[in-house]
Amino acid sequence: MLRSIAGLARGSSGTQSLALVTLNNNLTQIRTATKRVSGSKTNKNDSAGRRLGPKAYEGNYVKPGTIIMRQRGTKIHPGENVRIGIDHTIYAVEPGYVRFYLDPFHPLRKYVGVSLQKDVKLPIPHFEPRVRRFGYIELQDPEQAQKEEDRKSRKEYLYQSQLEQKALQKENFKNDTITKFKEVLQKEFAVTDKDVELASTRFFNILTLSNAGHSIESAKTQETYNYFYSLKLSVQKGELSKEEESTKRSEYLTFKDQIESQVNLDVNGSLYKYLTPEEVSTKQKEITQKLETEYYKVLSPKEKTEVSRLINTAGIFSVSERQSLTNRFLPSFVPYDVPGSVIEDIDPENIPKDVVAQRVFDEATRKAKLIGRPKAALA
């Protein structure tokens, strides 16, 4: 039978050792910690509450921007005339009265909305029209109406002179363009005085739509629709009868077909003689072939003017086609493969005035070499 003898010894670090000695002089030591562990000071106080919950209650009147509900997650969903923020805060976008309600189409959701009228409950029945706020009423007093008409915001007041100048420039541009169209239509296409006013106005409106991004064909369709819609509004106002509207529509269609069979409008705002699709295709091939055979080189200023005239020939190329041809034949930096754009074996000690020396990598020799580029190729 073995007998054990136990003893305690304290270390310098505050720990205790328990020594067990057996009869055969085997020593077993067990160390136990006795130092008290200190607590943390950082987590003694809890953070402040986020003040979640409703901030406006059923029937309360709210203004636009008023917070109705603060929450984490969409416990309450946004309904009519309210919006929800990125932190799920619901706020009003219209003045009115708060309504908490259930939607029969979403029975498991709770909604909050703003009713524009105090006696209107939410949700509004599915097939009934929504109640919307337009914000304007007709003023009966002429003096008060004129005062409201003349009212301007501070920004409008400060920029009034610039706005008037831009409006005047726009009006002058319209008058000048229509006058130019009238002269061309009467001199070159013999349009009668009866139709010249309507034709010049139509072409100006098509040009305006074209400058806004429409193609010429879509601008023509849009202008025809706008004219018919103006006739429809005149009927609603009582200025025209149904029979007069029908007569004017048929007359306009006849006039449109007649004028477009003689004259067409280019994207740059010039009028030209109508060309059939076959004539346009033939002219495109002729101009493209001439550019490739005669002008695919380093051009002089006179040749650049001629190339620009060919590319911008009225009625031949679209805007995208003109841009593509300009990038190819009138580039700001002529590529190295264009004939005459590179001068080999240039003397670095004696470089001509109209030549710019450049050091490029030669694929054949795998080394850098010096070449000359005409200044016309870099302009």
Rank of each mutant, 00 (worst) to 15 (best):
M1F: 08
A6R: 11
G7A: 15
L8H: 10
L8V: 13
S13D: 11
S13P: 00
S17P: 00
S17K: 12
L18N: 13
A19S: 12
T22D: 12
N26K: 14
Q29H: 08
T32L: 09
V37M: 04
S40L: 08
K44F: 06
D46A: 15
A48H: 04
G49N: 06
R51F: 12
Y57M: 11
G59H: 10
N60L: 07
V62M: 03
P64I: 04
T66M: 11
I68E: 04
Q71E: 08
T74W: 07
K75E: 12
N81Q: 08
R83M: 07
I84E: 15
G85D: 14
G85M: 07
I86A: 14
T89A: 10
Y91V: 00
A92Q: 02
A92F: 01
E94M: 14
E94H: 14
E94Y: 12
E94Q: 15
V98T: 06
R99H: 13
R99G: 04
F100N: 03
Y101C: 00
L102K: 15
Y111E: 11
G113C: 02
K121R: 14
L122K: 10
L122A: 06
I124V: 11
F127Y: 06
E128K: 15
P129N: 10
P129S: 10
R132N: 04
Y136K: 11
E138N: 07
E143F: 09
R151H: 08
K152C: 03
S153C: 02
Q169T: 01
N175H: 04
I178A: 01
K180T: 15
F181T: 11
K182H: 06
Q186S: 12
K187Q: 13
F189P: 00
D195R: 01
A212E: 12
G213I: 14
H214A: 10
S215R: 07
Y229Q: 09
S230G: 10
L233E: 08
S234A: 14
S234L: 11
S234H: 07
K237T: 00
E239N: 13
E243R: 12
K248Y: 02
E251W: 03
Y252S: 00
Y252F: 05
Y252I: 00
T254K: 06
D257C: 00
Y274D: 04
T276H: 04
P277T: 14
P277S: 10
Q289N: 13
K290S: 09
K290N: 09
E294L: 13
V298T: 10
E303I: 11
E303A: 12
E306F: 05
S308P: 00
R309W: 02
S320Y: 01
E321G: 01
S324C: 03
L325F: 05
T326I: 14
F329G: 03
L330K: 06
Y336S: 11
V338M: 02
G340V: 13
D345V: 15
D347I: 15
D347A: 15
P348R: 06
N350P: 01
K353V: 10
D354W: 12
V355T: 09
V356W: 06
R359L: 03
V360S: 07
F361T: 10
E363L: 13
K367H: 10
K369S: 07
I371Q: 05
G372C: 04
R373D: 05
